[in-house]
């Protein structure tokens, strides 16, 4: 758990972050969302003290981050950035092993850990272990970036627009992969993004910031259906519900029961937004949802457009 209390950062006269109070819940992914210049990256970088706050404090597991040396603090926190920042002169395995090496961990154990992590992020260790960063695609490089951040098994992961530099296809794939990883490991993740879809899709919680202040903090549903201000509503936009649907498989909305006859059939992993389009196209308000050949149930128009269906 990360607690931020009265956090403030000033540069001369200008204020980047002002009186920020926030608790990032343990084991959940919190998206720090907002327009550029709203202070979200500054906030993130204050957590691992790449930027020192000018006021307030940050508690990590109940402990003030200032009692540790900055380097020691950072070694206990995973860090993933948009530019990826793999070391081009080191192999993939050496890159992933960086923090364990800094911590002086046993080499042999680290080597094994590296293989596990590459496996975890979906890269075959036998193939990728010895490659150089220059030989990887953008998506593969950021997978290594994630593995590197997880290498020392830190309880907390900070991510600064981690998928921002990838092409849309690679971004989608990596977002899915990362969500699975996050479910399995249960890390406390803080992810800065300006991409609303990404925040709604990945975030257990979303913190929307504006001009250095917190505008609203809550679940994606809270923000969409109970916006705290005009700004929140405007920022998420009219089609916020649709956006949210785009990030979920239709299977999340399935109800058991007998389908209406002649209803179109869709596969369970289709995203809910596309399912909605199928209804419109086919002129049906119900769909049969299948996994492979097996009928899971059906889904109705109201289920998808209905409120607060988490």
């Amino acid at each position: 758990m990360i607690q931020v209390e009265h956090l403030e950062k000033r540069y001369g006269d200008s204020v980047a972050v002002q009186d920020l109070n926030l608790t990032f819940p343990e084991g959940q992914l919190t998206a720090l969302l907002g327009p550029s210049g709203c202070g979200k990256t500054t906030t993130l970088r204050m957590i691992n003290r790449l930027i020192e706050p000018t006021g307030g404090r940050i508690l990590l597991g109940g402990q003030d981050t200032r009692i540790l040396k900055p380097e020691a603090l950072r070694r206990s926190i995973g860090y993933v950035i948009q530019q990826i920042g793999l070391f081009p002169h080191l192999s993939v395995a050496q890159n992933v092993a960086t923090v364990p090496d800094l911590l002086g961990r046993d080499r042999r154990a680290t080597a094994q850990r590296v293989d596990e992590l590459l496996d975890l992020v979906g890269l075959d260790p036998a193939v990728y272990r010895g490659k150089r960063p220059a030989e990887l695609s953008g998506g593969q490089a950021q997978r290594v970036g994630v593995a590197r951040a997880l290498a020392a098994d830190p309880p907390v992961l900070l991510m600064d627009e981690p998928f921002g530099a990838l092409d849309p296809l690679a971004r989608d794939r990596l977002q899915d992969a990362f969500r699975d990883i996050q479910r399995r490991l249960g890390k406390t993740v803080v992810m800065v993004t300006h991409d609303i879809d990404e925040a709604l899709r990945l975030g257990d919680r979303v913190a929307l910031m504006r001009a250095g202040r917190l505008e609203q903090f809550g679940t994606p549903d809270d923000l969409i259906h109970r916006p705290a201000s005009e700004f929140v509503r405007d920022f998420l936009g009219e089609d916020a519900t649709l956006r949210q649907l785009a990030g979920r498989p239709v299977s999340a909305f399935v109800r058991a029961g007998l389908p209406s006859p002649g209803a179109p059939r869709v596969q369970a992993d289709l995203n809910a937004r596309s399912a909605l389009s199928v209804m419109l196209r086919e002129g049906h308000d119900t769909l049969e949802v299948l996994r492979g050949e097996e009928l899971l149930g059906h889904v109705a128009w109201q289920d998808l457009r209905g409120e607060g269906h988490a």
């Binding site: 380097e71 950072r74 860090y79 530019q83 990826i84 920042g85 793999l86 070391f87 800094l102 900070l158």
Partner: peptide
Amino acid sequence: PTGVIDAARGMGMTASQRFWRV
């Protein structure tokens, strides 16, 4: 590249480690 330096800092390398290792 600045990204590489930022990553090294964020991973907890000290100034001299950044210099010699990166």
